[in-house]
Amino acid sequence: MLSSIMSIINTTLMYSTPLIFGAMSGVVSENAGVVNVGIEGIMTFGAFVGAAVGFYTQNPWLGLLSGSLAGVILVVLHAVASVNFKADQTISGMALNFIGPGLSLFLCRLLFKNKTTTTRIANKLPKIFGLVDVTVLLALLITILLWFVLYRTKWGLRIRSVGEHPAAADTLGINVTKVRCTSVIVSGFLAGAGGAAMTLGVVSQFTPTAISGQGFIALAAVIFGKWKPQGAYGACLLFALAQALAVTFGGGRIDIPSEFLSMLPYVLTIVVLILFVGRSMAPSANGKPYKKGKR
C-alpha cells in the first residue's frame, strides 16, 4: 500500500516536471501579453539539443543549458515576428511547432547516422537522495522564483503592466517592445529546459515521441491555472497525478481497459474545469500586438 502511494507520488512528480517547465514558459509570455502556442515545438527542439549535447559532452548539466539556449534560439523567431513586426501570434507560434520538430529530426538524422533517435546518454541528471529527479526540484524553484519575480519585483510589475495595459506602460516610459521580447525569450528558455529535462532526466535519449503533446498540455495548464505560476503549477500536478493513477492502476491491476485509464487525466481536466474553474480572465492585452500611435 505504502509503496504504491510512494510510486504514485514519484510518478506524479516525474510526469509533471516537463509540464511545469512548459507551463511556466507560457505564464511568462502570456503575462506580458504574448500568446505562445509554439511551446510544444520549442520543447521538442530543447529535448533534442539537450540529449545530443548531453551525449557528446557526457555532461547532463551542459545538456540542460544547451537545451534551454536552443529554446531561446527558436523563440527569437516568434519574438521578432509577434512583438517587433506585430504579426499574428497564433500563426508565428504555430510555425515553431513545425520548425522545432522538423529541425530536431533533421539534425538528428545528420548527426546520428540517419536515425531518428539519439544515442542513449551515459550520465542522466542526478537524483536528490537517490529519490526524486533534480529537475523536480528545479521546476518547483522556477515556479517560486517566477511567482516572486512577477509579484514582488519591479520587473514583474512591468511585465504584467505590458500584458494588461501596454499603452499605460508606454506613457510611463516603459519600453513595451523590450519587456515583451525579454519575456518571450525567457519563455523560450524555460520551454527548452523543459524539453531537455525530459530527455536528460526521464528517458535519457531523444526520440520523435519524447515530446508528444506536453507543450499543448502546458498551454492548457496556463489557462487552467488562471495565468498564475502557482495555479499553473497546481494544474500540472493534478494532471500528472491523474496520469500516475492511470499508470499505477493500469496493466491489469484493475479490470478497466488501459486506454480508458489513460483518458483519465484528460477527462478529469474537463470535469474540474466545468465544476470549479469556469470562465477565466486572461491578461487584458494578451494576444494583441501593441501599436503605438494607433488612431
Binding site: 519591479k154 510589475l157 504584467r160 503592466s161 494588461e164 495595459h165 499603452a167 499605460a168 506602460a169 510611463l172
Partner: peptide, 25 residues
C-alpha cells in the same frame, strides 16, 4: 492610463519603482 487590476500605489510607482535591492519592490 491605469492598469485596472493593479493597486493605486502600484500604478503610481510603475516605471519608477522603489526597490530595496536586486529589483525587489
Amino acid at each position: 492610463m491605469l492598469v485596472e487590476n493593479f493597486t493605486v500605489s502600484q500604478n503610481i510607482i510603475l516605471g519608477k519603482e522603489v526597490v530595496s535591492c536586486c529589483g525587489i519592490l
